[in-house]
Structures are given as structure tokens and as C-alpha cells.
Amino acid sequence: MADVVLEAKVAEAGLADAVEVVSAGTGDWHIGAPMDRRAAALLRSEGYDASRHRAQQVAASWLAEHDLVLAMDAANLADLRTLGDTDPERVRLFGDFDPVQPGSEVPDPYFGGDDGFVSVLAQVERTADVLVASIASALGR
């Protein structure tokens, strides 16, 4: 969900020419599969296009290739940090940018009900807004 929302907000801010958004898991499960049907349905209902998203696994090379690598929770952050030398300013929690709960984790709503997806989307949207503003500022836009 964060990938789709962040990509849309980057485009809305006119930053698509300078910012590439990619998404991957730290594990190899679901590679090539679309996102959870409940997440996709919610995103569609809110005007986002979730049709292109496919699961992939993060590679160690991403730590050097990308300016910012964001993890949704502490476990994934720890997994990323085992992949190689990581700069704590470049490999961070997505929730570090959350204006309501700075430093929070984004919970995985997979095993819960639909309401979990709704609350995660709200957290992702408000955090993506702050993140995009931060990127725009860093780019001088």
C-alpha cells in the first residue's frame, strides 16, 4: 500500500522525474504476486491504481543504489541492516516521518479485518505527505 500511495503522491507533487519509488520485501515469499486483494480494493476505492504492484525481494545492492530505504517495522529494518553497511540516515523506518506517531511501525493488517487496512492506509497517507514534502525540500522544489 505504501508503494502505491507514495508513488502517487510523488507524481502529484511533480517529483516523478527525480524520484523513483520501488517496493520489496525482505523475504522471498509472494515474489511476482499482486498485493493482498483487500489492500488493492481499498486503494482502488480511494482512487489509487494498485494494478501494477508486484511483490519482489530487496537486494543488498539497493543499500548503495538508493538514497533512502524505508522499512515498515523494526524486524524489517533489522533485516535490511544485515544486508550490508547501512547509513542510519538512509535506512530508516517509514514511520520516522509519521507526523502523528513519529518513529512508529506500520502494522501488517494481513491477519486482521478490513478495518486494519483502513487504519494502515490513513497512516501511510499522512506519512507519505510528510515524506514527499521532505524530499521536495531536499531537492529544492
Rank of each mutant, 00 (worst) to 15 (best):
A8V: 14
G140R: 10
S134I: 01
H30D: 10
F111N: 12
A33K: 15
D96T: 11
R92F: 14
D87N: 05
P88R: 08
V124K: 00
A40C: 09
A78T: 13
E20N: 02
D67M: 09
A24C: 03
P99T: 13
L68A: 04
A138I: 02
L63G: 00
D17H: 10
D17N: 06
G25H: 12
A16E: 15
N76Q: 11
E105P: 08
V100C: 05
D98I: 13
E65V: 04
G140K: 07
V118I: 06
D67Q: 12
E105M: 07
A16C: 02
R92T: 06
A16H: 12
V4T: 14
A24L: 02
D108S: 07
S51T: 07
E7C: 14
A64V: 09
V132E: 05
F117W: 01
V22A: 14
V21Y: 05
P109I: 05
V69L: 06
A78F: 02
S45D: 13
S119W: 04
A8N: 12
V21S: 02
N76S: 06
V69F: 07
D87P: 09
M72R: 12
N76Y: 06
V132N: 02
V124F: 05
Q57D: 13
L70E: 07
D3N: 15
V22E: 15
Q101W: 10
G140A: 04
A133K: 07
L77N: 05
V118W: 02
G103Y: 11
L139V: 10
D129V: 12
E125G: 02
V5I: 15
A33F: 14
M1C: 12
D79W: 08
E65N: 07
W62K: 07
V106E: 10
D36H: 03
L77G: 04
R44S: 14
L121D: 07
A71K: 12
R54C: 09
A78P: 00
V124G: 00
A59F: 10
R141W: 10
L83V: 04
S134Y: 00
R81C: 03
V130K: 10
G112E: 11
F117Y: 07
L6R: 14
G32F: 12
A59E: 14
S51Y: 06
M72I: 09
Q57Y: 10
S134T: 15
A71L: 03
D87E: 01
R90Y: 06
V130G: 00
T26H: 05
G84S: 04
E20F: 05
H53S: 14
A71R: 11
G27L: 08
G95L: 00
L15T: 10
G103M: 13
G116S: 01
A138F: 04
A13S: 12
D108Y: 02
F94V: 08
W62L: 09
F117E: 01
F97V: 03
D49L: 03
V10P: 05
L70Y: 13
D108P: 14
A59Y: 05
V58C: 03
A24M: 02
L131E: 00
M1I: 14
V106G: 06
L83H: 01
V22N: 13
G32K: 12
R126V: 07
L63P: 00
H53R: 09
T82G: 00
R90G: 10
A78Y: 04
D87H: 00
V106P: 00
V21T: 11
V5W: 09
V69K: 02
V106L: 11
L131Y: 02
V91E: 03
M35K: 00
L131R: 01
G140F: 04
R92D: 05
